[in-house]
Nucleic acid binder design. Structure first.
Lengths: 132, 132
DNA sequence: CTTGACAATAGTAATGATTACTATTATAAT
DNA sequence: ATTATAATAGTAATCATTACTATTGTCAAG
């Protein structure tokens, strides 16, 4: 069993993810942390994002388009991506735990969870659409 | 408006996707079609998969791990991926249309749909787990 | 049945996201 | 202070996918 040693880069990444609400990609994390650690390597960012995810300290999200996104908010919640401007944001809604039961009904293994991403038009793009 | 011309490569890809149940990746499609067209290019496979998806003749699926997968089954249905052996398969369950309404409740844009992927242990991996 | 326009292809180069590698630096226990 | 080794910076490599280009295939018109 290997010991985890402290690193200020990792602390900084964790800190950033806990406070931001922008669901950054690895590259966005890199650009942000570079303000404080101009020499940080993109590899270091990726390694730490993977590490923190394994430790359950952050969550990895898929936006279904490009890069993975990361979230320091561990409260289970759902996300939305705009099909037009690609904006990615939280949704205020209750848990959908019950759909696991629906999925398990005719399934012979074990359903442990699900990932769901909602899509459509964000408020701004929806307005733009109406104006036309 | 450009005219779509017939191509036997494209017909073969469509044919394959309609009949298989293995939710193949682009590379799996490539390997399969090569049996019939040994000179087909991987670029041709990708171009046609994108084209057929645009035409709504096939569906693109994300398994959340590696490559995209493709399905010739246009009936809306849900999928499952095993976290251990990575097997990807269909689930027999009803539509979850109602969760769009739940998501839209406190949202100010327009929810048009959702993508959901269930995960857990497939039948085989679940059995293996119990034996230990 | 030719011919000609141009869609589609094969083959290869390029891109973007991510991971792997390696020599150096930082951490923390003794 | 010394030392073992985890973590880093910087760079190379990988993987999935897209872009590019010269050649071939399709098909409508003469």
């Amino acid at each position: 069993m290997t010991v985890t040693k402290f690193s200020k880069q990792r602390e900084s990444i964790k800190e950033y993810l806990i406070h931001t609400k922008e669901h950054p990609t690895a590259d966005m994390v890199y650009l942000n942390i570079r303000q404080k650690f101009p020499n940080i390597s993109l590899g270091t960012v990726y390694r730490n994002l993977n590490f923190l995810e394994e430790q359950g300290e952050i969550v990895r999200l898929k936006d279904g388009i490009g890069s993975d996104r990361f979230d320091g908010n561990l409260e289970p919640h759902y996300h939305f991506v705009c099909r037009k401007c690609k904006k990615f944001c939280d949704l205020e809604m209750n848990s959908l735990e019950h759909i696991n039961t629906l999925a398990a009904a005719n399934f012979h293994g074990r359903i442990e969870g699900h990932t769901t991403l909602f899509y459509g038009l964000c408020e701004e793009c929806f307005e733009d659409e109406r104006k036309k």
